[in-house]
Design a binder for these strands. Structure first.
Length: 255
DNA sequence: ATGACTCCCAGTGGGAGA
């Protein structure tokens, strides 16, 4: 069973690339972030025609998430229950007995700003939600654009980025707290190439120079950990014309 | 170097992203 996450940075722009990628990779489940579409504009028909179920939760201009799956998704949850939020950032569903939470974590802009405070409050609410979901669904995957680089080895220039957004102690503590609920970073279960990133700035020829961050993650529960056979970042879509600034991350579960 | 690029909504520029 292959599951994946991809921040597409506008599904309206990236739909052809998404359909191409689905045809090649054939994931059982894919969660999307930054669809930037109101629900009435979600390209449901094209995705259905390609052979995937889809559920979605979006808004105008910013944010927006979706979950695509080969099997029908059930028990769909949109956003964090009890956390009143005008921003569309979370979609969860059960697919083939696996609870999948897809999330677009807030950017946070910079420490000390209102947006950073929002990120911290959102992370508190996410942690409570994941804990409750784990209690009901031991077989669980939390994946998406975390906007957190967990360790210095996830940053191309850790000295320049020290204390900057995505790399602050507060954000990294939240990442570790999520792991403390009984989740593990699937990517780090395997030997990986050094300088593995999931995002590269559009500016400065960053992709060509491989200057990026690893901020898109797949965390799996302890119950699923023995089934994790592989986890990788697919850099190919970043080489497309008009690419998203993020690459998809995939995990393969046996059985 | 408070930049660089891309997307969006707007409207002939500006905010946000990371």
């Amino acid at each position: 069973m292959k599951l994946a996450t991809w921040n597409v940075n506008s599904l309206a722009v990236r739909l052809p690339q998404l359909l191409d990628w689905l045809a090649v990779q054939q994931p059982e489940v894919l969660v999307l972030q930054e669809t930037k579409l109101t629900d009435d504009k979600f390209p449901h028909a094209a995705i259905t025609a390609a052979g995937w179920h889809s559920v979605w939760f979006g808004q105008k201009t910013y944010n927006g998430v979706a979950l695509l799956s080969r099997s029908e998704p059930i028990d769909v949850v949109r956003n964090l229950p009890g956390f009143d939020d005008p921003q569309a950032r979370v979609i969860a569903a059960t697919v083939d007995g696996v609870r999948v939470i897809g999330a677009y974590f807030p950017n946070g802009q910079a420490p000390g700003t209102d947006k950073f405070a929002y990120k911290m409050a959102w992370l508190d609410a996410l942690q409570a939600f994941v804990a409750a979901e784990l209690a009901r669904h031991p077989r669980l995957v939390l994946m998406g654009d975390y906007n957190i680089a967990p360790e210095d080895r996830d940053v191309f220039d850790p000295v320049a980025w020290a204390g900057q957004i995505h790399c602050t102690d507060e954000e990294r503590a939240h990442f570790r707290a999520l792991c403390g609920l009984g989740l593990v970073d699937a990517f780090r279960l395997f030997e990986q190439p050094v300088k593995s990133w999931s995002w590269w700035d559009y500016r400065n020829l960053a992709f060509r120079k491989n200057q990026g961050l690893r901020i898109d993650h797949i965390l799996v529960s302890e119950a699923l950990k023995p089934q994790v056979a592989a986890c990788l970042i697919d850099k190919l879509p970043r080489k497309n014309e008009r690419p998203s600034d993020h690459a998809p991350v995939l995990v393969e579960l046996t059985g």
